[in-house]
Design a protein around this nucleic acid. Structure first.
Lengths: 234, 234
DNA sequence: CATCAAAGTTAGATTAGTCTAAATCAAGAC
DNA sequence: GTCTTGATTTAGACTAATCTAACTTTGATG
């Protein structure tokens, strides 16, 4: 065996595993949510210990999926971002498909998609997207990345940031994957596309009161933060 | 670290991996097809070297999935058979689902199912089965194992074993996963449920001539061997 | 600007699954 | 009955992903 490097893959990385995909997705998500990617944060998200993350960061850097300066920073390269977005696309397409074609409720889809996202072929991805009419949103209102790695634009004003007014708001997205909370929201009728009004806002970051249809409901401020809305054009 | 064994899993086996599932499925298939399971045969089917098989056989024996006598024999236990059949069930349900719900053709489904069979949840399996009306056959006519590990009965007379006669035969199953040959069979219109007659049989294991609808086609004897038929009751 | 706690990395070990090379066994041929 | 050949197993090494324990770096605090 000579020491000649494989010209295609370069040293280190042989092929992309589901675990590598998980790391890239987690890095992508943290970049979006926190603006930075820290080792402990990654370790928590991925349910591993920090040294495991460090080891994998080196692998990812060898693949040229990230730029990595030890003790300093982690940043996805274009190449890494594309892989992450492909997995996110799979995830969200699968979630929507399970709801539309197989009668899943929106609180059931996350776990299933979390696994299958790594294993559907390009062909199955295409058939699912086509069956769904090339959608841009999953059941939680999360944008589905396009094939080329671009994202459909996505309003991002939190319900918690609106002052009460007579204006009607449309729920566009719910940034939560927790089964219990999603079930609760479905029960009170608060889902993407639902139209609501803000009736009152308690001071000192207290709960909101919102109106869904004709019914008024109090809504925890933390939860309101995860609900993205837009004003309805008239 | 004490040497106390885990009372649940026993020594050796921690949890069932997709690779373990592949070995069990391969052992099951060889038991059916050849009556015995040989190390080299397993190695060929699974695309690994014989020593790798030997190593895994020990693991499977620790799990109590097989009875294993070195140099002698390999046999699935009831426990191992149930796991194998569950994976076969997944495989065949997925194949049928891809055809029925997503417009796959029967020569495209095998590869996709080969991967996904390891990753669908019980819930998804149930939804798919229910969507399909709890079917007993996949697109190739292969029987879909029941949840309890029993198999729907399945006629097993090969087309090659019938003498020519005026009798009408129904194709029930095609024991082949090869894309090219399946495409060919679909092109000449020979699929499960197709009704045919045997017009002639060349001697010395020569080709058959069969009639599909009004058209007569020659059919290679090897291929005829893989096609299972039953006589139509009148 | 020296200190120190938290964050991050290094070192070294473990497990699952794989390999090659070498040894051993089984079963038919003589 | 012995031999030989092909099948099988053993021995030992490798890779990916993980861990714990120990060390290093960073950056905020006084």
């Amino acid at each position: 065996m000579t020491t000649t490097e494989n010209p295609v893959h370069g040293k280190g990385g042989q092929h992309i595993t589901p675990i590598i995909e998980d790391y890239l997705k987690a890095i992508y998500t943290l970049e979006q949510r926190e603006g930075q990617v820290r080792t402990v944060a990654l370790a928590e998200v991925l349910n591993v210990k920090p040294p495991t993350v460090t080891a994998m960061l080196k692998t990812l850097a060898n693949f040229k999926f990230i730029e990595y300066e030890p003790y300093r920073s982690v940043e996805l390269t274009e190449k890494g971002r594309l892989v992450a977005l492909e997995i996110v696309r799979h995830h969200r397409l699968i979630e929507l498909y399970l709801v539309e074609a197989l009668g899943y409720s929106w609180d059931e889809v996350h776990e299933e998609a979390e696994v299958l996202e790594h294993f559907i072929s390009e062909k199955l991805e295409a058939r699912i997207a086509s069956y769904l009419g090339n959608p841009t949103r999953d059941p939680h209102g999360d944008p589905i990345p396009n094939l080329d790695g671009t994202l459909p634009d996505s309003p991002s004003v939190s319900l918690a940031d609106f002052p009460p007014s007579a204006r009607v708001l449309r729920v566009v997205r719910i940034r939560d994957q927790n089964t219990e909370r999603l079930r609760y929201l479905a029960k009170i009728g608060l889902m993407p596309q639902t139209q609501i009004k803000i009736v009152a806002v308690e001071p000192f970051d207290g709960p909101l009161t919102i109106q869904i249809g004709t019914r008024k409901t109090p809504l925890d401020r933390q939860l309101a933060n995860l609900i993205l809305v837009e004003e309805i054009e008239s």
